[in-house]
Design a protein around this nucleic acid. Structure first.
Length: 270
DNA sequence: ATGGCATATCCTATATGA
């Protein structure tokens, strides 16, 4: 089974590219970020026609997250990250899909820094720590997937110096990501490619895509229940090279089948 | 310190992204 996350940067304008990717790669479960559309503008019919049911949480102009499923529809668990009822931004959605708890997230960018947006990013991270711990400990297979807006290490950026003042690379942001991993989460892509420079985002400026000057900021984290099922992981970077592409490419993991529950034998009748 | 580009909306100007 293949699970993927993709920051589409506008689902209305990106729909042809999204459908082309879904058809070619056929992921079973997909987390989307940056819908940049109100709930009513979500292309439910087009996705259904492509074989995907969905749940989504939109917002005007920016943010917005969704979970797609090729099989049974996602069973929604929540659509807010707990911990701040005043947070109006559509950045979190969680559902049960194919026996897995799927948490799709779009962590705040945090620029400019310093300032309220950077504070919001750190606050959001703290709330994520709390909720992620409860998910990790739930005893269910869980995946955290999405655009984390974190460059975890210098291996995840073409040139750290160009980004040293950016919110994505700040020491406190990296520590927050490490603190999350320290709960036991497995960074799938880094685990399967420990030494490789591998990117998920290339900005639209200065031919960064053509020069492979990218960042690794989209991540798929697995808890201890799910990690043993990890077979492989990668980036569908061809998507970034298409016409009118998003500035992100999809990240994916291949998961093996769930181990069957032990069969309880019926006691034989005497 | 700014801009380079792309997308959105209260659209010929501005906010946001990373």
């Amino acid at each position: 089974m293949k699970l993927a996350t993709f920051n589409v940067n506008g689902i209305k304008t990106r729909l042809p590219q999204l459908l082309a990717w879904l058809e070619k790669e056929a992921p079973d479960i997909v987390c989307l970020q940056e819908l940049k559309a109100l709930d009513g503008a979500f292309p439910q019919a087009e996705l259904l026609a492509a074989g995907y049911s969905a749940i989504w949480k939109g917002q005007r102009s920016w943010n917005g997250v969704a979970i797609l499923s090729k099989g049974a529809p996602p069973l929604e668990i929540r659509r807010e990250l707990p911990g701040d009822p005043s947070d109006e931004q559509s950045r979190y959605i969680e559902a049960a899909v194919d026996g897995i708890i799927v948490a799709g997230l779009y962590l705040p960018n945090g620029n400019p820094r310093p300032g309220p947006k950077f504070d919001y990013k750190l606050d959001w991270f703290k709330r994520l720590h709390v909720h992620a711990q409860s998910l990790f400990d739930s005893g269910h297979p869980v995946v955290l997937a999405g655009d984390f807006n974190v460059i975890p290490t210098d291996l995840d950026v073409y040139n750290p110096k160009s980004w040293q003042k950016d919110a994505l690379i700040q020491p406190e942001v990296r520590s927050a990501y490490e603190e999350l991993l320290a709960q036991g989460w497995l960074d799938s892509l880094r685990h399967t490619h420990p030494e490789e420079r591998i990117y998920t985002f290339w900005d639209y400026f200065r031919q960064h895509w053509q020069r492979n000057a990218g960042l690794r900021i989209d991540h798929i984290l697995l808890n201890a229940e799910l990690a043993p099922r990890l077979k492989s992981a990668g980036v569908h970077s061809w998507v970034r090279g298409e016409e009118h592409a998003s500035d992100h490419a999809p990240v994916w993991v291949e998961l093996g089948a769930a181990r069957k529950a032990p069969v309880r034998k019926k006691p034989k009748a005497a």
